[in-house]
Design a binder for these strands. Structure first.
Length: 359
DNA sequence: TAGGCCATCTGGTCCT
DNA sequence: AGGACCAGATGGCCTA
């Protein structure tokens, strides 16, 4: 199966992810209607350049007509360009009016299919956007950034499960932001309410870009100073783009909320966290999906097989010391464990995960 | 205004 | 034969 197909089917499969159309506000029917309307438009305005002079696909060449199988003369300059070798292959058929019409219809149908295909792909991407950190309806991540962030997110979650430790925020953000563009990096960092200046300091001070205390095996990240020094990312800034655009932090949802309501996306409607990868296998079990009204009640099952049942030793102050700072990280904007809370009544996974990190 | 992102059209190729 | 997939081209929109 080709990649995009897999992506589309994975994230469009209602058995794998909560109700695609419901979240995206797009349904097959509505889209079909839209397509039909568009077809009317495009059929009228559609340029038939490809049909006029361009080459035609093989299916357009072959066996179209029974009635007009007359063969067009070898008129490709057979006399005027005598030095050019005659073309081989099936001889051109004369483009009768009927054949032109049929070609048009084929092209219109192909365009519709292609449009639908791209809509499916976009729908799948929308679903992906909803389960990676920094989901916002109003300011969507670009396609490529969504894919990159999703990859990093999967990696980060896998590392959490593999190590059985709660990562420190810096490592978590670093992992998520690896390879992302500067704006997206700022967004993610801001989403996770990281003090960007300190993050930067922390990071830049680590020789080789490594941050050693985390449970991740960190690589060096190509962050530039300007990247995270944006005033938008300052905790106290009211101009924080995430406040404006209602971004939502998955770190918060996993490890607890910020406690500042304005930081939570007012537009958030659904589950925020994807199924977690455990031992390389995604464990996804949604319950009570019989009713479409249960969309908020999708539960992701999570098993900590092989993982310690309590918080790992030394994890207590992995991130936030009682002083409010750790290694220069200001934590005025992030709450300690006991202040964390779960958005909605979402899923046992959050309880389990929080219990895991709190115990 | 340049550049990024996106939707759409299009023709080619591969597969069923 | 027809559909799926892909990549190139094109134009619109938005933002710095």
């Amino acid at each position: 199966m080709k990649g995009s197909t897999m992506l589309t089917r994975l994230f469009s499969d209602p058995s794998l992810l909560p109700d695609v159309q419901k979240y995206s506000g797009w349904t097959e029917d509505s889209d079909s209607d839209k397509i039909k309307e568009e077809d009317q438009d495009t059929q009228d305005g559609m340029e038939v350049s490809g049909l006029r002079g361009g080459s035609r696909t093989h299916s357009e060449h072959d066996g179209e007509d029974d009635e007009d199988d007359e063969v067009e003369e070898e008129d490709d300059g057979e006399d005027t360009e005598g030095d050019r070798p005659k073309k081989r292959g099936p001889k051109k058929r004369k483009m009768t009016q009927a054949r032109v019409e049929r070609s048009k219809m084929r092209r219109v149908k192909a365009n519709t299919r292609e449009r639908n295909r791209m809509h499916d792909l976009n729908s799948a991407l929308d679903n992906l956007r909803k389960v990676v950190p920094c989901y916002s309806k109003t300011q969507k991540l670009s396609k490529i950034e969504t894919l990159r962030l999703a990859k990093n997110y999967i990696w980060a979650l896998s590392e959490i499960l593999r190590s059985g430790k709660r990562p420190d925020l810096v490592s978590y953000v670093q992992t998520l932001c690896k390879g992302l563009s500067q704006p997206t990096t700022n967004l993610v960092a801001g989403c996770l309410q990281l003090n960007s200046r300190n993050f930067l300091t922390e990071q830049q001070c680590q020789e080789g870009g490594r941050y050693g205390s985390g449970s991740f095996s960190m690589h060096s990240y190509p962050y530039q100073c300007a990247r995270l020094s944006s005033p938008h990312c300052q905790p106290g800034s009211n101009s924080h783009p995430l406040r404006t655009h209602g971004y939502c932090s998955t770190y918060d949802s996993l490890y607890g909320g910020s406690g500042s309501p304005e930081y939570n996306s007012p537009e958030y409607e659904g589950p925020l966290s994807p199924p977690l990868c455990i031992n390389g296998n995604f464990s996804l079990k949604h319950q009570g999906s019989a009713s479409p009204d249960n969309e908020k009640g999708y539960h992701y099952s999570m098993h900590y097989s092989g993982l310690p049942g309590s918080r790992p030793a030394g994890a207590h102050n992995l991130v936030f010391g009682s002083s409010g700072t750790r290694s220069g990280i200001h934590t005025e904007n992030v709450l300690p464990y006991h202040d964390m809370h779960i958005h909605h009544e979402r899923a046992p996974v959050y309880d389990e995960l929080n219990a895991f990190f709190h115990n």
